[in-house]
Structure formats: structure tokens, C-alpha cells
Design a protein around this nucleic acid. Structure first.
Length: 538
RNA sequence: GCCGAUGUAGCUCAGGUGGUUAGAGCGAGGGAUUCAUAAACCCUAGGUCGGAGGUUCGACUCCUCCCAUCGGCACCA
């Protein structure tokens, strides 16, 4: 059997550092499916890239400042930091629940972050990109916060909470000179069409960019729970600049030298579509001002809705942590990750979380395809070869070339990951298994086995099936790591994703020949009745 | 209100630059079979391609208007 490499035969695999981030999550919220989703996407990509040999840094964390946290804490009679600690712990619990492999968890109240934010803001002050100016707007005295012109108009210039009229108020604020970056931003978007993905989101940004940019205030004085502005401590650095800079401070970028600098800039900033503007426009402008290299891509996914409706507390269809835990109990973590990646809002439209859909996806993809294909292949090896993988006898099966199919799948898988098309990466993996199924149906090894004259044919068929299954498992591992690892155990192959040798592992070969295998049932069939139903009051 | 996106079979979606009977997966119905987790396989389902106009010999694909859903509209993560 030839051992030619399926991908970039002449090139070494890309071993450059890679940096992927989630937004930092606001501690005033409780973790829910949205947080789990974004973080899981990043985890899948990070796992795949590490396996592929890249030096990956995967960051997530919490955003802990701001008026809302201050008020929530006040309402409970505790210090803001205590509230932040409590909820940050809740978010960290999520990382454990989903077996996420983030390399760091940054909190904006950490000294390392605060110190660097001050230092970076100071730098902006020195370059003239931050200046002291006057801010005027509609102020809600009851809520002690400014509301936007649009919001004010919507509520007829009255406070939505107290009903009292909004007042015109002003204060001195530090501004970021966003307007100065209009041209450079346009150039950025023109030169890097992939800077914002998906395309629909990019168009939105471009459209709004055409409308022109105004400078943006980056400090507040109406609350104190935040990072003091360097040199003018009455001002607190406003949350979004505080928050955005986490991507830099986690890598100690404000410090002269650090090991983590090699990860900069981000390969992907994965975010939800609601914070696109900050990431696609303000963030790059700030980086330009700081003279830091631009990220490769801001990937803005859409939202989950639940059972056809927007998630809301009053509807009771919020997919929160306890709900998710029920799914994990019944279906297992891998099934949850598979559903997130394959049925989620990776594209421009929102995705619907449906209990029935979850069960369907689990059954058709994982039980009937991945599980069943592994099962029938290992069963035949057990029956006809006592579980020992035979050598490929080199028989020809016109119209079938599993090696070529595997190579194609791996190439497609790689391309999908470059694009953050995680669902397509899954499709490449599972597609190869469908091909194996079709191959078995066409060559009928279970009939061939009855004829002692056709042992070569039988060996050729099953050797190729199990090798294709092995390669598919490599592609599927980032999404369903637990079950793929049990598969590896069952087919006696020694694969360690941490070794970064995916290129070797994804290569068609005969490494399994002689391996002792046993029949596996990777994904148990589950009674639809035990699917956790959303508590939708209908 | 403004900007943008989306609206194609029950569900999730494909459908460069307009052109014979509009596709796939899942589900559903039927069939056949056993290597396998009642799985894989075969056949079937006839959706006015959101609505109304228009351009054209001809539009799902171009234009206009309308409707529905979603995001943003600058401090709201």
C-alpha cells in the first residue's frame, strides 16, 4: 500500500502559533447556551489546530466591571468584587462542564489586566488618540445612566423604569478618535475580505462604515466600578474598551517582553453578532492607534432561539445551565457538542434549539452513522478475523477507492477549518463514514466471508474500511473527543492528539494491520421519551 | 424610522453571471435484507421557490413595492 501524503505533500504542516478568543462574558448574566456555544466552537477549533501541530492559545474569561454589576451588588448588599467572584466562578464551572481546553481565563478585575489597560490607555493618550471632550446626552436620573438618542425617542424621552422624563445632561469625558481611522478601516476591509465573517455580517459593517464615524467616549464618571483612568481618577474606563483590551492583556502585550507575545494577533475572535461593531470597527481602530498587528478574522455567529421562539425568562424557554446539564446526563457531552456545532447559528441566521431536533440529530448522525459504521466494521473484523486487522491484499473494487475518498475528505476538512466552517469539517468526517457504509453495501463482505476462495477480497475490504474509519475518527475527534478516544481504544490504535501529528495520522496507511480490535457501540440508542423537554409554557 | 440580513418540500438547508421535468440531508410512507445499535440499502413524497407587480421569448435566480423574522443604529457585553 502506498504511503503518499494526502495533503500538501511537499509542504510541512502549518506549525505557526494560533490565537483564538471568545468574548469575555459579562458576570451580571447567568451562563446559558449562548456562552456555552461560543466557547465550544472555539474549543473545537483549538483542539483541531493543536492536533494539526499548531501552537494554540485559546482564551476566554469574564467582563466584571460596569454599572450593572455595581448595582446588582448594591441590591444584594455585597461588594461588586464579591458578586464578580461568585459569577466568575459560575462561568468557570462551564469550562469544566464542557471539557473546554482554554489556555487561560482572564478576568477584567485581575491586577494583570487593570495594570495593562491603564498602560495601554496611557499610550493612547500620548499618541493623541484619546482626548478630553464634552459629552451630552439623555440622562435617566433614576437609573443614573445615559440612554441613546434612539432609545430615548422610543420611550418618548421618559425613563422606561420610573416613567420620569429624561433630562439633558453633559459631562466631560475622554474620547477615542475613531473618526481619524475611517480611511484606514476602509483599506483594511478592502484588503482583507475575510476580516469579518460571515459575509452578511461584513456587509453590515461596510454599510455602516459608509455612514461615517464619530469619536467615541471611553470613560464615565457616573459609576466607580471600573478601572480608573490614568491620571484622572474621577473617570472610569468604560466597559467596552476595558473589555476589548482583554485580548491583548491576556498575552501581556503591554509588557515589554513575554512568551505569550508570539500568539498575537488573534487568528479568530469569535463573537455573537450583537457585538460586531465593537470588534469589527472600534477594536481594529484601537489596535491601529496602538500600532499593533490586526487580527485575522472576527467571526460573528448568530443566536440560538428556543423551540421556535426567542429565548426569554418569562417564556421559560431559556436554555440555561441546568437545562444543559439534563441533556448532558441523557446524551453525554459529545452529543451536546455535536449538536452545538452542527445545528447551531454558525451562519448569518439564527438557529432553533429543539428537543426533538436534538434527538433526531443524535440518532441519525451519531447513532446511525458514526456508531453504526464503527460497529459493523468492528463486528466483521471480530467474526471473520478474530478481531485482528488483516493486511490489505490489494484487491481492486472498480468504482471504489477509499484511500482517495479519505484524502479528499481530509483536504475538505482542512479547508473547512481554515474558514471556521466547523459544520463542514464535521460533514467531511461523517461523509467519509457514509462512504464506508456505501462501500460495505456494494462489496458485501458479509457474503464474501462465506466463500473461502475469496479471503483476499474480504481482507482487502475490511482493512480499508477500518482504516477509513480510523481517519474519520481523527477528523471527528475535535468535536466528539470522548467517544473517538474510546473508539481508538477499541480498535487498538495509538493516537495522541496532543502530539500534534495529525498530518501523519490522517494519512492513509497500514498502521492498524495486526491490531487487536473489539466490537464497539459508541453511541447508545436513546428513547426519545427521555429527551429533556424545554419547559415552554405553551 | 434608517442600515443590513433572512424568507425554497414537514424540518435544516444547496441552488456562479436568468433557460429543458427546482435539488440534498433528516423525518414520514412502502420494500427488501442482515455484517451492524429495529441500523445501512432501494423506491416514494409532487414544494405556485414570502406576497404583488415589472423587465424578458423565458426568472427561484434582474428591478420596484409590500409582508414577516432577526441584528445594528455608537456606550447597551
Amino acid at each position: 500500500m502506498s504511503q503518499s501524503a494526502p495533503l500538501h505533500p511537499d509542504q510541512k504542516p502549518d506549525q505557526s502559533p494560533a490565537y483564538i478568543t471568545t468574548p469575555i462574558y459579562y458576570v451580571n448574566d447567568r451562563p446559558h447556551i449562548g456562552h456555552a456555544y461560543t466557547t465550544t466552537l472555539c474549543d473545537v477549533w483549538a483542539r483541531a489546530m493543536r492536533f494539526a501541530g499548531r501552537d494554540v492559545f485559546f482564551l476566554t474569561g469574564t467582563d466584571e466591571h460596569g454599572v450593572k454589576v455595581e448595582k446588582s451588588a448594591q441590591a444584594r448588599g455585597i461588594e461588586p468584587q464579591a458578586l464578580a467572584d461568585e459569577n466568575a466562578a459560575e462561568f468557570q464551572k462551564v469550562m469544566k462542564m464542557f471539557n473546554l481546553t482554554n489556555d487561560d481565563f482572564i478576568r477584567t478585575t485581575e491586577p494583570r489586566h487593570e495594570r495593562q489597560v491603564q498602560s495601554l490607555v496611557k499610550r493612547l493618550l500620548e499618541t493623541g488618540d484619546v482626548y478630553l471632550g464634552e459629552f451630552e446626552g439623555w440622562y435617566d436620573e433614576g437609573q443614573e445612566e445615559y440612554v441613546t438618542e434612539t432609545k430615548a425617542k422610543e420611550t418618548d424621552f421618559k425613563s422606561p423604569i420610573s416613567g420620569k422624563p429624561l433630562v439633558r445632561a453633559n459631562e466631560r469625558n475622554y474620547y477615542f478618535k475613531l473618526s481619524a481611522y475611517q480611511d484606514r478601516l476602509e483599506t483594511l476591509f478592502a484588503d482583507h475580505p475575510g476580516f469579518v465573517k460571515p459575509d452578511a455580517r461584513r456587509n453590515e459593517v461596510l454599510g455602516r462604515l459608509r455612514g461615517g464615524l464619530q469619536d467615541v467616549p471611553i470613560t464615565r464618571t457616573n459609576f466607580t466600578w471600573g478601572i480608573p483612568f490614568p491620571g484622572d481618577e474621577e473617570h472610569v474606563i468604560y466597559v467596552w474598551i476595558d473589555a476589548l483590551l482583554n485580548y491583548a492583556t491576556a498575552l501581556n502585550l503591554a509588557d515589554a517582553d513575554d512568551d505569550r507575545h508570539r500568539y498575537w494577533p488573534a487568528t479568530f475572535h469569535v463573537i455573537g453578532k450583537e457585538i460586531l461593531w465593537f470588534h469589527a470597527v472600534i477594536w481594529p481602530a484601537v489596535l491601529m492607534a496602538l500600532e499593533l498587528p490586526m487580527p485575522g478574522c472576527v467571526y460573528a455567529h448568530s443566536f440560538w432561539i428556543s423551540e421556535g421562539k426567542k429565548m426569554s425568562k418569562s417564556l421559560g424557554n431559556f436554555v440555561d445551565l441546568p437545562t444543559i446539564e439534563r441533556y448532558l446526563d441523557v446524551y453525554g457531552l459529545d452529543a451536546w457538542r455535536w449538536y452545538m456545532v452542527n445545528n447551531g447559528p454558525l451562519g448569518a441566521t439564527d438557529a432553533d434549539f429543539q428537543a426533538a431536533g436534538f434527538h433526531e440529530t443524535y440518532t441519525s448522525d451519531l447513532v446511525n452513522t458514526v456508531g453504526n459504521c464503527a460497529s459493523r466494521t468492528t463486528a466483521m473484523l471480530g467474526k471473520y478475523f478474530d478481531g485482528v486487522v488483516p493486511a490489505d491484499a490489494g484487491c481492486e473494487f472498480p468504482g471504489w477507492d477509499l484511500k482517495a475518498s479519505a484524502d479528499e475528505a481530509v483536504t475538505a476538512w482542512r479547508a473547512a477549518l481554515e474558514d471556521f466552517a466547523l459544520d463542514n469539517a464535521c460533514a467531511a468526517g461523517i461523509g467519509l463514514l457514509r462512504t464506508v457504509d456505501a462501500f460495505i453495501n456494494a462489496t458485501e463482505p458479509f457474503k464474501v466471508a462465506k466463500d473461502p476462495e475469496r479471503q483476499d477480497e474480504l481482507a482487502s475490504t475490511l482493512a480499508r474500511c477500518i482504516e477509513a474509519v480510523r481517519i474519520a475518527s481523527v477528523m471527528l475527534w475535535p468535536v466528539i473527543p470522548q467517544r473517538m478516544e474510546s473508539l481508538w481504544l477499541a480498535i487498538g490504535c495509538d493516537i495522541d492528539p496532543a502530539s500534534g501529528d495529525l498530518t501523519t495520522q490522517a494519512c492513509w496507511g497500514d498502521s492498524l494491520v495486526g491490531a487487536q480490535t473489539e466490537k464497539v457501540a459508541l453511541f447508545p440508542r436513546i428513547d426519545a421519551a427521555s429527551t429533556p423537554m424545554a419547559d415552554v409554557a405553551s
